[in-house]
Simulated scan of single mutants.
Amino acid sequence: MNLLHIFILALVQGLAELLPVSSSAHVVMAEKWLGLDPTAPEMTMLLVMLHTGTMFAVIVYFWRHWQEAYFSSPEAFKRNAWQLLLATAATGVVGLTLLEIIKHVFMAGAPSFEIEQLFGNRIIIASALAAAGILILVSSGLQRRATQHGQPMTTRAALWTGAVQGLCLPFRGFSRSGATISTSMALGVSRPVAEAFSFALAVILTPAVIVKEGYRLVHAHALSSSAAGLSHLLMPGLVGMVLSFLAGLLALRWLSGWLEHGRWHLFGLYCLAFSGVVWVAG
């Protein structure tokens, strides 16, 4: 992996992460087309660092909205914090349960199995993209038949949104933002609230993923006592993080514009089309 590879992957990640089209699927396919191994610890750690860059973009972009919605009063803070906590707990329960099912049912309980081993499977990626596309199209149709403004986030919607986020974790292609925003919208939540809640969940989830992949990288290279070795491995991710941060800000502005102009369904059509590309050319 060289600097050009990092530049390309950072742009792909930054532009696609905050759009409901599965940045992971785009990055994985870009890695495969560049001759890189998406399941290698270095590549999964790079992807996490790219996610970190877009996480900071989310914080910058949504900070004013979160101040108004989440910190406007003690009551609003408690209500929103509780909903985010419930959603994150639902994500953990569903994600960990699904991981155990995959490991013991489909992988025969192999002790060396890691979920990252599935990240380069084009059949899984294509199927997950198709599922995300269908979910986006369904939510778009339901929103058109619902009231124009929708409603605030509810405890029921938060739990379902968190549970669906848990389904996204093992599968590259099942867009996290697309699935969570679609779930909230399908349950009657207004578009701006669904969008902000989805990305708030991403900010909460990202640090845990960073720790997990960082441990996997250190363990794979046995560099836990070598600061110089760790610095060498993390440097590509740090460069990519800055680039994905800048690209992520642009993508967020585009996403909001498309949502506000009723173009949500086009993201679903794109996911279905890209699913076909992955199936044929992956």
Rank of each mutant, 00 (worst) to 15 (best):
P152H: 11
P152A: 11
P152K: 11
M153E: 13
T154I: 01
T154P: 06
T154F: 06
T155C: 11
T155H: 12
T155K: 11
R156D: 15
A157P: 02
A157G: 10
A158M: 09
L159V: 10
L159R: 06
L159N: 04
W160P: 00
T161K: 06
G162P: 14
V164C: 04
V164A: 05
Q165I: 10
Q165S: 12
G166Y: 11
C168N: 01
P170N: 15
F171A: 15
F171N: 15
F171D: 15
R172C: 10
G173N: 03
G173L: 04
R176G: 00
R176D: 01
G178W: 01
G178P: 05
G178Q: 03
G178H: 03
A179E: 09
T180R: 08
I181N: 00
I181F: 01
S182R: 00
S182A: 15
T183E: 07
T183W: 09
T183Y: 09
G188Y: 08
V189M: 03
V189T: 10
R191S: 09
R191I: 05
V193Y: 00
A194N: 13
A194D: 12
A194T: 13
E195T: 13
A196I: 11
A196Q: 12
F197D: 15
F197V: 15
A200N: 00
A202W: 02
A202D: 00
T206H: 03
P207C: 09
P207N: 03
P207E: 05
V209L: 14
I210T: 14
I210Q: 07
V211W: 03
V211E: 01
E213M: 09
G214E: 02
R216D: 13
V218G: 05
A220Y: 01
A220V: 05
A220F: 02
H221M: 14
A222N: 08
S224P: 01
S226R: 08
S226F: 07
S226H: 04
A228S: 12
A228T: 10
A228K: 07
A228M: 08
L230Y: 04
L230A: 04
L230W: 09
L233E: 13
L233M: 13
L234D: 10
M235I: 01
M235C: 06
M235W: 04
M235Q: 04
P236Q: 00
P236R: 02
P236Y: 07
G237M: 12
G237K: 12
